[in-house]
Design a protein around this nucleic acid. Structure first.
Lengths: 356, 356
DNA sequence: GTGAAAGCGCTAACAG
DNA sequence: CTGTTAGCGCTTTCAC
């Protein structure tokens, strides 16, 4: 039947047996030339390779990983591919994985918990070597992940509370801190923190960092503008509320670049307001367009690629170590990229940071 | 040996046999409950399902697709995940695929031909149901694709010259045309087309469309500013050259939003130049931040999601039709989104388009 | 309906 | 080094 089918369809996907026959060797030798080249003598190896080429053979990975019990591709589930932060994470992870001869397949859960689970299951079913997960909602995630997943798994951008999984996170608190410090060092004393909702873990931590910086410097005051989300439009709303505010404001820490951009858009329309002279604004994330808006936005750069690399390292360790190791959480520090929205055109050196 | 290993590792991945034993049915029945539920009586079905749940069984897709000879996931290789256009394509494709019960796995070739090939091979080896490819370079691609790939394949964002593959493309010529028409209708007569290099297929076609529009209206002149790339920095360079130009310029068609933003940044620094009053600028791509810069950029919106959906439809047809059908190329038209960089704050209605 | 058995294409012992 | 063989976990006839 098999041969009949092959004949009928022409030449559909030759297999190792075909290659072996063509090369006049045993099937095991073909497997070896591919997986353990050192076990095959040069002439034989060349002959097999030639046959593979002649027949256009491509090894069936389903069969391979079924027989070998392991695969060399890892999957990553990203909450939002539209966010360059996550794209950076994927890039970093891929680079490291590649150095170890592994491949990265990406799934976009698009901020839908259902899709997240669905793709987790896809990777699970595919018996990938391991899974990287940038989860949607920490709490929902925790229970569900353990339910569906039995592959090695590393969390990215979320600190697991239990020691069930290894993870990589950015130090949000530190990010908020250096953002506020930057403004304070520029002489600003009446700060606003804008963003939200505050229940979001990341937002809350950034705010805590800001609070610490403010608390450290006497005479500095902080007011809060909570938004229902972190997009441009939310930023505009925040901007209007900042303008409406009674107190004089001279510095803003926005919880995201989009919020910062929205705020800047609104502030710039006020004829008597200049940025950064009157109000300096710091964003967060270093979204690729934060440097690209007409008033480049000073921002806290998430160490996306590094996080991806670190996550990949952890995952590889788990894969190798057979789950034995302790589940570490690596914390990476973001850094500040000064741009025009806080330092104006003062220092031309800031241009160098645009590519950071 | 198998049982020994299982005992040693605890309870690693139960299989269908385990489920069958647990449920007191034959292995084939387990398979049927999963794939042909109508062939199994209700009580049996429930019992099997319960066992699956109890054991935490997850079907091994490697084995499944090996046995069944087919998979239900398709892979897409994207040139650049950092570009929202491609992310949109992936989204569209995923939506359609999902409606057909299939999954989408994404690979990012990151503008490297080598990675593109590598991932093509990964998908090939995984024997995915089909492949969507947003290729890097058309010409290099053509020869290599046919070499490594034997799965159903549909090209996205590139029009295959031969009828070897089905494809989906945007009508670049039309995009250039409506961009120029827009400026002409606004009364602009001294236009500049900025972008490059002109060898790029898309750029050349956009330029051709611009030329046609210019040619249609007497008294309209066009000059060219060729850049070596399509980023912000290239846009800045272009902006400086536009300023330096002898002739009076009142309208610019930029070959990408990034170029447009760069140009705008430079022009806005000229004290005597207002946008759009003195110079109106149209971008291209509707990159998500074109609406988000402080001067929102009028742009030509690539029909990314539609392209993804169309590509997925074509691919599904190929998968079903066993490659028999003719290889169609679907052409989708981009549309113009008017924003402040050309129409100013004139029409508040343009705000509605920001989300388009 | 349900059960038994023959592979899917490949890897990994093991014998020669 | 090279050939043989026994599965990996699942789907799919084909009897019962």
């Amino acid at each position: 039947m098999t041969d009949a089918r092959k004949a009928r369809l022409g030449l559909p996907q030759p297999n190792m047996a075909d290659v072996a026959r063509h090369a006049g060797v045993a099937i095991g030798t073909v497997s070896n030339t591919l997986n353990n080249p050192e076990k095959v003598r040069e002439p034989t190896r060349r002959r097999v390779l030639a046959s593979i080429d002649a027949l256009g053979f491509v090894r069936n990975d389903a069969a391979r990983s079924l027989a070998a019990g392991s695969s060399d591709t890892v999957g990553i589930v990203l909450v939002d591919m539209g966010n360059s932060f996550f794209v950076d994470i994927a890039r970093g992870a891929e680079a490291t994985l590649r150095e170890h001869g592994m491949n990265l397949l990406i799934a976009n859960s698009d901020i839908e918990i259902e899709k997240q689970l669905s793709y987790l299951e896809v990777f699970e079913q595919a018996r990938v070597a391991g899974i990287l997960l940038a989860p949607l909602d920490p709490h929902i995630t925790k229970s569900l992940v353990s339910k569906a997943v039995s592959r090695p798994l590393v969390l990215v951008n979320y600190a697991p509370e239990d020691a069930q999984y290894a993870g990589v996170v950015a130090d949000e608190h530190h990010g908020g801190y250096i953002a506020a410090r930057h403004l304070i060092e520029l002489g600003r004393r009446n700060l606003v923190f804008a963003g939200g909702p505050f229940q979001l873990q990341a937002v809350a931590e950034r705010l805590a960092g800001v609070r610490r910086a403010v608390g450290e410097t006497a005479g500095t005051v902080l007011s809060l503008v909570e938004t229902t989300g972190m997009n441009i439009s939310h930023g505009r709303t925040a901007g209007e509320r900042i303008i409406a505010q009674e107190e004089h404001v001279d510095g803003v820490v926005a919880a995201s670049d989009l919020v910062a951009i929205g705020i800047i858009q609104v502030l710039e329309q006020q004829p008597d307001l200049r940025i950064p002279e009157d109000i300096a604004v710091v964003g967060y994330d270093n979204n690729h367009f934060a440097s690209e808006s007409t008033t480049p936005v000073t921002t806290i750069s998430q160490p996306g690629e590094e996080m991806g690399r670190a996550a990949a390292e952890l995952l590889i360790a788990e894969i190798r170590g057979d789950g034995g190791a302790e589940k570490r959480t690596v914390v990476l520090r973001p850094h500040l990229i000064p741009r025009r929205s806080t330092i104006g055109t003062a220092s031309p050196a800031d241009l160098q940071n645009h590519t950071a």
